[in-house]
Simulated assay, not measured.
Amino acid sequence: MAHKPENIAKQVEQSGDSGKGLPPLDKWNPELSGDIDIRITRDGQWIYEGEPLAREAIVRLFSTILRREDDGQYYLVTPVEKWRVQVEDAPLLAHTLQVKGQGADQTLYLTTNVGETLAVGNEHPLSVGRYPGSDEPRPVVVVRHGLEARLVTAAYYDLAEHVSEGQTDDGSPILGVWSGGNFYEIGQGS
């Protein structure tokens, strides 16, 4: 079968799992079919053969069949095919932050560029690393199947409004945010 986005989407739709929540990606383990000329840019665009994927519905569907495997590579997976794609940074972006509650009892909600809302907590933990060779922060939330959504600058600034000071096990001050009963470190305290 030709590895065009429309054909991959059709395979998922024909699997009988389309429209019933997330596809059962953990049950799909086909052999590698090869590389497909899809690249997800740092700004969240899905590029196929040098052009942005025109159909938002396909991008949303592909975000549900994308996984990162133990080799660090990203794959679009259907019941019968597995195609390697290129990802420049995180495959998804978190662009909107909402907060319910306050202090240690609050929960942070991040909405991704594909319309999915994630509650930061045990299932979707938040971490703030750094880009290699830089002091630029790289805030991400775990989505599923090895995928992360990187907080865009506006969402990161919104997050900063909810920072409080905590302590490490040895008593050193750290800065972080509460969500879902967990404290997520985002930097060193004073």
Rank of each mutant, 00 (worst) to 15 (best):
M1A: 13
M1K: 09
A2T: 14
A2P: 15
H3L: 13
E6N: 10
Q11E: 15
G16P: 08
S18F: 15
K20I: 04
K20W: 10
K20F: 13
G21P: 08
P23S: 05
P23A: 06
L25E: 00
W28A: 05
W28K: 00
N29Y: 01
N29P: 01
P30Q: 00
E31S: 14
L32R: 12
S33V: 01
D35T: 11
I38L: 06
R39K: 15
R39E: 12
T41A: 03
T41Q: 10
D43M: 03
I47A: 06
Y48F: 15
E49I: 08
E49F: 02
E49M: 10
E49W: 03
E49V: 02
E51F: 07
E51D: 09
E51V: 11
P52A: 02
L53E: 00
A54V: 13
R55A: 11
A57W: 06
I58Y: 07
V59L: 00
L61R: 00
T64V: 00
L66S: 06
L66D: 04
R68Y: 05
D70H: 10
D70I: 12
D70R: 12
G72Q: 09
Y74F: 15
Y74V: 02
Y75G: 03
Y75D: 02
T78C: 04
P79C: 01
E81G: 05
W83S: 03
V87H: 04
P91L: 06
P91A: 03
P91Q: 08
L93A: 03
A94I: 02
H95R: 13
T96E: 13
L97I: 09
Q98V: 10
G101A: 09
Q102C: 06
G103C: 02
G103E: 08
A104S: 12
D105M: 05
T107D: 10
T107I: 12
L108T: 06
V114F: 00
T117L: 08
L118M: 04
A119P: 08
A119V: 05
V120P: 07
E123K: 14
H124Q: 04
H124A: 00
P125V: 09
S127T: 14
G129A: 13
G129W: 04
G129Q: 11
S134C: 02
R138Y: 08
R138L: 09
V141A: 09
V142H: 14
V143K: 02
V143R: 10
R144C: 03
R144F: 08
R144L: 04
E148C: 01
A149V: 08
A149E: 09
R150T: 12
R150Q: 15
L151K: 02
V152H: 01
T153H: 15
Y156L: 13
Y156N: 11
A160L: 15
A160M: 15
V163I: 14
S164T: 15
Q167Y: 11
D170G: 11
D170I: 07
G171E: 07
G176K: 07
W178K: 07
S179Q: 05
G181N: 07
N182M: 11
F183I: 05
Y184K: 09
Y184C: 00
I186E: 01
Q188C: 01
